[in-house]
Each structure stands twice: as structure tokens, then as C-alpha cells.
């Protein structure tokens, strides 16, 4: 038991240790080219984002300031393999309060987009994407619901042009991404 704890501690320390080879010095420039993330280099780590983040209050690991720092340091693999990037609820409080006009929520979105490009995303997004492509709506609206609309005197729902959505999905690269997805 004790031995087990010791190995665990060792492994944790190993995990926390950074190697120069982990650093991708160009990563911060790559991110700063993405819409909304232009000011990533201006972050001076004041921590207002983390202090005001509703998610950080309830999660032990989600810290927007830390995510921005990891971007600045170029720890790409550490960021893209980390599930916490999917926790931002896009309330945009961080963007409103940042004294340096850093688009923190946009940086998190950029990280998510890059992760997806590598074939990884939470399964819920794959479902939503597939629903939109099939029906135009993010959820599959059951037939009973449509019938009930009639009974309630509501107009019928506008339909989607599914062929056009499929075209857009191909041209924006989403189709390829969805094929690759391992979730």
C-alpha cells in the first residue's frame, strides 16, 4: 500500500516536471492568428479571469489564467490532451473583465478547434453535428412534438436545406473532422 503511494507520488512529480522538448515555441503565434485570440501575448497573468470564472469555482482544475499561460509557454500537447478545455461555459465574463483585452474564451475555443482537428472531441458535439446535418436542428425533434405544435395552433417548423448544409460541412472541413473523430 505504502509502496503504491510512493510510486504514485513519483509518477505525479514526473507528470508535473516540464521538459524543454515539450515546448513548442511557435504555438503562441499559431494561436494568436486565430480569431479572437490575437491578444494572447498581452496576458500579464493578473488572474481576473480565473477569479471571475463560474466554472473555476466548482472545478479544481479549470483555470483560465493557467490555460493562457500554457499557451504562452508553448505547452501544446499538455493543452490539447487536457479535458478541462471543454469546461468553459462561454459566459464571456473573462472577456468582459480582462484588463488586457485578451479574448480568453476565444482562446479556449481555438484550443478546442485544434483538438478537434486532431480527431478528439466530447461525444455530445458529434451527436449535435450529426443532428444538424440530418435535420438542420441541433436536436432531433420527435414527430409527436410536431403534431403537438399543430394542436397548440403553432405554425409548422421551417425546414432545412439538407443538401446545402452537407456542402458547407464539406467545404469548412467539418466532414473530414467528423470522420476522424475518436471522441
Amino acid at each position: 500500500m505504502l509502496k503504491n503511494e510512493k510510486t504514485q507520488e513519483k509518477e505525479m512529480k514526473k507528470e508535473m516536471m516540464l521538459k524543454v522538448s515539450d515546448i513548442d515555441p511557435k504555438f503562441k503565434y499559431e494561436i494568436s492568428k486565430l480569431p479572437g485570440a490575437e491578444n494572447v501575448l498581452l496576458c500579464f497573468q493578473c488572474g481576473t479571469c480565473t477569479a471571475d470564472c463560474p466554472i473555476a469555482r466548482f472545478d479544481d482544475f479549470y483555470r483560465p489564467r493557467k490555460l493562457v499561460r500554457l499557451v504562452q509557454l508553448g505547452l501544446k500537447d499538455k493543452l490539447l490532451s487536457n479535458d478541462v478545455i471543454w469546461l468553459c461555459s462561454t459566459c464571456f465574463t473573462c472577456i468582459d473583465h480582462c484588463p488586457q483585452d485578451v479574448g480568453i474564451a476565444d482562446i479556449v475555443r481555438a484550443l478546442r478547434n485544434l483538438t478537434t482537428r486532431e480527431g478528439k472531441m466530447p461525444v455530445v458535439y458529434k451527436e449535435i453535428a450529426s443532428n444538424i446535418l440530418k435535420t438542420g436542428y441541433a436536436y432531433v425533434i420527435p414527430g409527436l412534438r410536431l403534431k403537438k405544435r399543430e394542436e397548440e395552433g403553432l405554425p409548422s417548423l421551417p425546414k432545412a436545406s439538407v443538401e446545402n448544409l452537407a456542402k458547407l460541412c464539406d467545404i469548412t472541413g467539418l466532414s473530414k473532422m467528423l470522420e476522424k473523430v475518436r471522441t
Binding site: R109, A110, A129, G136
Partner: peptide, 13 residues
């Protein structure tokens, strides 16, 4: 109609 796009922003801006 199609979805406004919001739910797909995390995976493809």
C-alpha cells in the same frame, strides 16, 4: 432554417 451555429463553435469555428 438551420441551427444558428453556436453548438458547433467549439469544434469548427
Amino acid at each position: 432554417f438551420n441551427c444558428c451555429g453556436f453548438p458547433l463553435d467549439p469544434i469548427n469555428h
